[in-house]
Design a protein around this nucleic acid. Structure first.
Lengths: 345, 345
DNA sequence: TTGAAAGCGCTAACAC
DNA sequence: GTGTTAGCGCTTTCAA
């Protein structure tokens, strides 16, 4: 192709057979020391690189892993992929990324496409609308390596890597409680996402632990995750119309948080004096808010790394894997300015 | 591998030779209509998919393209890659992404790695520190397909896709001028980036066109692109300490913009009443600011798409390409609230 | 210690 | 119209 040296070229140049060259290059012990040295030095000199395609064909491994996510533009996923790349790269796998855009049909098509490319394994965060999981199940049944991350499914036996959403939400809520806030609202993402439910449960648990009542009126869901600013604005309007206005808000995503900041400002409310805030975050722009946002940070990068490590281990395993683990990665509470209690120090 | 049906399996099952099956599948005209139909239906039935690895080995094409960018976590690049993926996917190429983290050494290593994977072409946005470009030049000399995007290099003959940074900055500045602002500051990214210089030139040109003096004191550079909030804070402090305070700021990046917003708030300045703002943006969070930011939007997605289209065309070209084009994509001016002139309507 | 040859999946030049 | 064969780059029995 573009100046690629093959084993054959080396063999010809050195007057050896291709098999001898191959063995020398792979350090086989049954090769004369001089021959070996000769070959290796020559290979080095001409910059020989084994053709990965030929290797793939030979041993029926493509050395690539397929990734199925909702949206590359989503910060969580782009960071997770960052982590995936970092491990894959150093393990000499390459990564084929596909996006579902939350469509079940595209999910199936993507898996099909990845399989036709003979990927050695799959890293999957299921589309939010996917209930029928036959396409994954049949692969798992045949022992095909899959690791699910972030948005996982209960019904399939496989390795999984998730965020501890429950504890993250618990921590966020408890921090607010410990800082003296009593009427804590929660503005969450769509309720059909498991991660939303887990966070809601964490929120409830913290209230309960501290003897605060749970009030359904304090919980608002944004169907579009705050993508439409009105969603958030309306949620806050409703909250602030309550007889007992909340004195703090725990937000379920960056978009919601940003919406909250905008709306508060519009209403003339300052953070944290009038309303304190803690957010669940995928990114780091919230650090630059004013006041800097106190957040629960998702370890997106690490999730990607860990999922990839588990997958590659499974791919390389000599024996079929039968024990499956679910790794739960902790969120990190980062205290900045937005959850301070300025009234009661 | 995992249930993959080969041409051989089909041949055996149907009592034909592999070549007949191959031809039938490829719709060769010199095959009996019945045989062809028989084969195609059977292939369909058993869900036959050609092995892309075998094809690659055969025709010396990997059907993959290599991408070299600074940082996946950078919004501009993740959106550009989104565009790259969208075209590559539908053209049946897959994409191998590598990151330089702005290191020249890693750039060389990545190119080397991609070449050893036999990618059919390269999509490159050069690392900010790269001055020595031998690794690209020698590939180009051998006619290897490369398309540069965003951060391009003048010295190498190749297709290129860039943003019209000059015009974007010109538009931003002119909008502020047209809205009645007279003392327009520019807070820019590191001055060693070509894109910074182009934007600065656009800014100057707009001032000149409208007969406003250029004042070097109104231009501040942030070496770290606003990554450290102090950078921006200090820049603004200096600007606001001037005898003639600026009445508007044109910001060179999202991070800088966010820093500006925070700093203004801290100083008790409101946007746009005290200072108007226009930003250069890669993302859409700025829409949710308060006030929503008026921006020059970079067509990151389209840049990725166009670069990929050009690359694939070049890869598929029967003849060596000798005419090279530089596509310049326009930015989009999106007026929202931050550049309104509340004093003079 | 080294070489010859087969085979991974597929295509294409060359038979017949 | 269909089969045979060689070959893409590499590894690995099997012989020598």
């Amino acid at each position: 192709m573009f100046g690629a040296v093959t084993i054959k070229d080396i063999a010809k140049a050195l007057g050896l057979s291709t098999s001898t060259v191959s063995r020398a290059l792979n350090g086989s012990y049954e090769i004369g020391a001089e021959t070996k040295k000769l070959v290796q030095e020559y290979a080095e000199k001409v910059h020989y690189r084994p053709n990965p395609i030929a290797l793939s064909l030979k041993d029926q491994k493509s050395h690539s892993i397929g990734v199925v996510v909702a949206e590359l533009a989503n910060n969580f996923f782009s960071q997770a992929i960052n982590g995936i790349e970092s491990i894959a790269y150093s393990s000499d796998y390459h990564v084929i990324i596909t996006q579902t855009h939350e469509s079940h049909e595209r999910e199936i098509a993507n898996v099909e496409h990845l399989m036709s490319r003979h990927v050695d394994g799959l890293l999957v965060s299921v589309a939010s609308g996917s209930t029928d999981l036959k396409h994954f199940q049949s692969l798992r049944d045949r022992g095909f390596p899959i690791v699910f991350f972030d948005r996982v499914v209960d019904d399939i036996e496989a390795h999984k890597v998730v965020t501890n959403n429950f504890k993250g939400a618990f921590d966020a809520t408890e921090l607010l409680i410990n800082n003296g806030f009593k009427r804590i609202a929660h503005i969450a993402m769509a309720s059909n996402l498991a991660i939303s439910r887990e966070r809601l449960n964490g929120y409830k648990a913290a209230l309960e632990k501290h003897g605060l009542p749970f009030d359904a009126e304090y919980v608002k869901h944004c169907l579009h995750g705050g993508r439409a600013i009105n969603e958030v604005e309306e949620a806050i309007a409703e909250l602030m119309a309550l007889a007992e206005k909340p004195d703090a808000v725990f937000s379920g995503s960056d978009r919601i948080t940003i919406g909250c900041f905008g709306t508060f400002k519009k209403m003339g409310l300052t953070v944290p004096n009038d309303v304190a805030m803690v957010g669940f975050t995928d990114s780091d722009v919230t650090e630059l808010f004013d006041p800097p946002l106190t957040v629960i940070r998702q370890p997106a990068f690490q999730i990607g790394q860990m999922a990839t490590e588990m997958l590659i281990k499974q791919i390389r395993s000599k024996y079929p894997v039968t024990e499956f683990v679910t790794e739960t990665l902790s969120t990190e509470l980062i205290e900045r300015g937005s959850a301070k209690n300025t009234a009661k120090p």
